[in-house]
């Protein structure tokens, strides 16, 4: 797991804010110690080799594996943590799970906004958040955006998936081929992990998963293609919290 994250905290004094952000960072590193598949000594790696059984795994790992299973069922199999080689790789939601968990360390602040490698979680007030141009690589901060939404109230979490950064990193579980249903999918809701899982699932499974996600009460913005005359073809659910018309 590697990610850039940006935390903005409002309310307490600077020392408190610094401490909260440090605690946030430590929590992410702790999650990496449990879940990284890049290092052979983590719980997740030892589960993958069969050295550990799920019964011996810490509660956090069991929780994440349960979440993977929950979203696999909810998405009709479009979100599936099992890699083609059979190893369970929960990387798809570990990042947002760790961010949501780490954000509990910010509870003392009046307002906060966490932006972690393209997924955004907000607390307190109304925050304007952009939807990245799918053509932008690297950190999209400061670049032109294709839409602007308001987070706050009902929608506090926003996740986006797509092929902008690394083409073909999501697999279609039905065809076994790289998923190329949509250019980019953004999901707004109140649970960051849920938004993330559905965004990935829609990229992987296409149209049928879109209907499931809408039925699950999530708001969606789906960039379906680039127009030859400029701009993007997109569709959104009626409740998508855009500020642009």
């Amino acid at each position: 797991m590697a990610m850039a994250f940006d935390v903005t905290v409002g309310g307490p004094d600077e020392d408190q804010a610094k401490a909260a952000i440090d605690a946030f960072h430590r929590e992410l590193l702790r999650a990496d110690d449990l879940f990284s598949l890049f290092r052979p000594d983590t719980v997740m790696s030892r589960l993958a080799t069969g050295e550990l059984t799920i019964a011996e795994a810490p509660a956090e790992v069991v929780e994440v594996l349960h979440l993977c299973d929950e979203y696999r069922i909810a998405t009709g199999g479009a979100f599936d943590a099992k890699r083609p080689d059979g190893v369970i790789d929960p990387t798809g939601i570990v990042k947002t799970w760790a961010v949501a968990r780490a954000a509990e360390h910010l509870a003392g602040a009046d307002t906060w906004l966490v932006s972690a490698s393209g997924d955004v979680l907000a607390h307190g007030g109304e925050r304007r958040v952009g939807i990245a141009d799918p053509r932008v690589t690297g950190d999209p901060a400061g670049t032109d955006v294709i839409d602007v939404v308001t987070l706050g109230g009902t929608y506090t979490a926003l996740a986006t998936s797509g092929s902008a950064q690394v083409a073909d990193h999501i697999w279609d579980p039905v065809t076994g081929e790289p998923a190329r249903h949509f250019v980019q999918v953004s999901v707004a809701g109140s649970d960051l992990v849920e938004c993330d899982a559905w965004a990935t699932a829609i990229c992987a499974g296409g149209g049928p998963v879109v209907e499931r996600a809408a039925a699950a009460g999530l708001e969606l913005l789906i960039v379906a293609g680039e127009r030859s005359q400029g701009g993007f073809e997109a569709v959104s659910t009626p409740g998508w919290p855009t500020v642009r018309e």
């Binding site: 797991m1 590697a2 990610m3 940006d6 990387t91 798809g92 990042k95 906004l113 932006s115 972690a116 490698s117 393209g118 997924d119 955004v120 925050r127 304007r128 958040v129 952009g130 939807i131 990245a132 141009d133 799918p134 053509r135 999209p140 901060a141 670049t143 032109d144 955006v145 294709i146 602007v148 926003l158 996740a159 986006t160 998936s161 797509g162 092929s163 902008a164 950064q165 690394v166 990193h169 980019q184 953004s186 296409g206 149209g207 879109v210 209907e211 809408a214 789906i222 960039v223 127009r227 400029g230 701009g231 993007f232 073809e233 997109a234 569709v235 959104s236 659910t237 009626p238 998508w240």
Partner: peptide, 29 residues
Amino acid sequence: SMAIPLFKERVLEAQSADVEAVSGASFTS
């Protein structure tokens, strides 16, 4: 390919905006 009546069709242009964060695809491969 997904003309579901519930959905609103939009044409989006990349424009600058005053935002606090940007949501986009992450590199996690």
